[in-house]
Nucleic acid binder design. Structure first.
Lengths: 230, 230
DNA sequence: AAGTGGTCTAGACCACTTC
DNA sequence: AAGTGGTCTAGACCACTTT
């Protein structure tokens, strides 16, 4: 059982790049050249090129050709929230935000925010604490039920197409504030901390989240390269 | 200036899924149906479907159709090593590994490893410390020059196609050992810690890396959704 | 003007799933 | 057998870059 032609062409071209036959900045042979060399149609060659493009090895430039890209820096895919983790909601409030939140969300002075505080428990012990802030606008009802169970993208899904949202995540270590330590029952110690900023496609800041993970939560897992499962 | 037809079809199908017109498990209209509905060729409809497939909204099943997938859990893309960070190599040794390394790499007893230790300095101050371990095999020369400057995937590139490698990354907080604290000049405090395990496509464990980041390194940055730039 | 990639057509045959 | 996606052909016209 043979591979498809476009896959064999892609493999051949990939090999040429990885072995140094074509280096960064080089223009690959054109679609026309290759379709003749492989005695196939341009569409088939094109499909091979698009695989390599999706792998980040080359980039198409109309009128020029396919340009070999510099080696990618490490790109990892981080997946979380997959497990059967269920958060327990501690409080939903409408409140005046802290200065940090005002800054990150670009709020006008005096504008209140909806705040959602949750805790994740495993085996009866709290292992993570979660705070979210969304600008409060008069006239938009707060559906508390939704807030209890929803993750960030879903919280905003009624107002924005999910795929038009972007989330920026910063991972650091930080000392949690006292109110968080009280819930997590941990001593004065730096915790793994996730800061999420949700943006619209236009760059409008829609929400801000802060999550503190105790060592019991376990590591964040990420992977690069071939998919882990299959 | 109008969008390409395949993009408009993709947008329309995407909208139907996001608005709930098609829910998880549904079979989308077939390529033939849609090519007639849009008065276009099957190839054009197909291209639209493949965009949605790359977005994870649907999955193709030969003989059945395109199936709507369950909403993705949060998937973030973590990029690092992009900046002009240059590591300084502290040492390259061939040594007997610590038990933890033996376990992670699945080494036989007494098998030595190549160890590479590096430090990242900014403005003259160390901000990160990096250890890598690769099983040492007699007869394979160690090209020290390569080790000094290379990142993990490149280190193994002569033996494995880069794209056949997979790296698993665990992010946690941990106390660095004393030899690391000495280099980083930091006190007894938990640091952001990255554990990397490099695997071949067959699951063979090829390398193990440990990286300690000081607060001065800054946060790890990740994003999901639309690309940050463009 | 010539060459490149970007889009698109109207077919064809195959492998797979369902009936 | 009928319908589905997977692969492939041999053209076409367009927008863009280079000469």
């Amino acid at each position: 059982m043979s591979q498809a032609l476009y896959q064999r062409i892609a493999a051949s071209l990939r090999q040429r790049i990885l072995s140094g036959g074509h280096v960064t900045g080089d223009v690959m042979p054109s679609e026309n050249e290759l379709s003749q060399a492989y005695h196939t149609s341009r569409v088939t060659v094109r499909k091979a090129f698009q695989i390599l493009e999706s792998e980040g090895l080359i980039k198409a430039r109309q009128g020029k050709g396919y340009i070999v890209q510099p080696p990618r820096s490490s790109v990892f895919t981080l997946v979380f929230g997959e497990e059967s983790d269920s958060y327990r909601c501690l409080a939903v409030d409408i409140q005046l935000p802290e200065p940090e939140t005002v800054r990150l969300l670009g709020l006008r002075e005096g504008q209140p925010v909806i705040s959602i505080r949750r805790v994740l428990e495993r085996d009866g012990s709290p292992v993570a604490y979660d705070e979210k802030y969304i600008p409060y606008e008069r006239g938009r009802p707060v559906v508390e039920q939704e807030l209890h169970f929803s993750e960030f993208p879903d919280l905003l899904a009624d107002r924005f197409a999910t795929l038009s949202l972007r989330t920026e995540l910063h991972i650091r270590t930080a000392f949690p504030p006292e109110r968080v330590r009280r819930v997590l029952g941990c001593r004065q110690e730096k915790l793994l901390t996730l800061e999420k900023l949700v943006l619209s496609a236009e760059g409008e800041r829609l929400g801000f989240g802060l999550e503190y993970l105790t060592p019991q939560y376990g590591p964040l897992k990420a992977s690069s390269g071939l998919p882990p499962i299959e």
